[in-house]
Design a protein around this nucleic acid. Structure first.
Length: 297
DNA sequence: TATATTTGACCCAC
DNA sequence: GTGGGTCAAATATA
């Protein structure tokens, strides 16, 4: 079946986008004054370019290697004792809950150990749109929130502190960070983390990264730094993918296109959807809410 | 090669 | 049955 996969759907949508852009260009050439037509030509060219990039990226991704299916067999460690409190019980046992809008850095070194899509049945906190296809069927593009689980990098030394990061439903521009347990690794880990943690600063006014340092969180999302216009000016790096790397200090923000490309989805959201989507599907949405496609009819 | 991240699967509470 | 938390093999990266 041609449209049975999200990849096929994206390709179909982008092809439709190309057609629409072509139509728009024709309309602009026919009806607009020279200046507007010139502007419109540039815009449609941009749309074409974005569509091409998305299609190319998706096509590459479709042939990429896949994770091998694991055979874990039955109950791996039936004798394992729970290291954490009861899963459900932890919901009311969190030690600290923070609404972060500036930075997720808290000075500790965290290691990501899991990620889950949350509240798939909850319409609040996600966005969706229906997309009629050329074959008459209709698909909905649904954005789910994901929740990220981190534990202290010193968990191997007995530190039982964990952290849970989730996009705020009430305030999508913020992250709710919940802390569980206490750091038993002492001041050492905190100080060590701070020693290697230059302040991460984003000049939101100019949309240029500045004073960028090493991500101290070992994978924790600094996503609140990446909102809004930053989606097009982050040097083309996926903040999650680069969790172990260094934040780019380049100021060539306008050159994002040339440096994008680590992820088809990233390209899709960075360029393919264009400015109109920028405020909605920023990095926050990019990695927390990978688009999903559900058949309506 | 070591280390960190990703992600499918498992387990458990509700 | 479903949602959420965690595990651990596979994979990526330095």
């Amino acid at each position: 079946m041609a449209l049975s996969t999200p990849t096929a759907v994206v390709l179909e949508l982008m092809t439709m986008g190309q057609q629409s852009a072509e139509h728009l260009r024709e309309l602009l050439m026919a009806a607009s004054p020279p200046m507007a037509a010139e502007h419109g030509q540039a815009l449609t060219a941009e749309i074409f370019r974005c569509c091409d990039r998305v299609i190319a990226a998706i096509s590459r991704g479709a042939t990429g290697k896949k994770r091998k299916v694991t055979d874990r067999g039955p109950a791996t460690c039936p004798t394992d004792l729970p290291l954490m409190p009861s899963k459900r019980a932890r919901g009311g046992a969190e030690a600290h809950r923070v609404l972060e809008t500036a930075t997720a850095a808290d000075g500790f070194v965290w290691r990501k150990y899991g990620q889950k899509d949350i509240n798939g049945s909850n319409t609040r906190g996600r966005s969706s749109q229906s997309t009629p296809m050329q074959d008459g069927s209709q698909w909905s593009l649904t954005l789910f929130f994901s929740r990220f689980y981190y534990r202290c990098a010193y968990s191997g030394e007995g530190c039982g502190a964990t952290r849970r990061v989730q996009q705020s439903r009430d305030e999508p521009a913020a992250f709710v960070i919940a802390y569980y347990g206490e750091h038993t690794c002492g001041d050492a880990c905190w100080q060590e983390a701070h020693a290697a943690m230059p302040p991460a600063v984003v000049n939101s006014a100019s949309n240029v990264w500045g004073g960028i340092g090493v991500d101290p969180n070992g994978g924790s999302p600094l996503l609140p730094l990446l909102h809004g216009n930053h989606t097009r000016h982050c040097h083309g790096e996926d903040p999650y993918e680069k969790s172990r790397g260094q934040w780019s200090s380049s100021s060539s923000s306008s050159d994002a296109e040339a440096e994008l490309g680590t992820s088809p989805i990233l390209e899709f959201l960075e360029g393919g959807l264009g400015v109109g989507w920028e405020c909605v599907v920023n990095y926050l949405a990019f990695d927390c809410d990978l688009p999903r496609f559900d058949m309506l009819h």
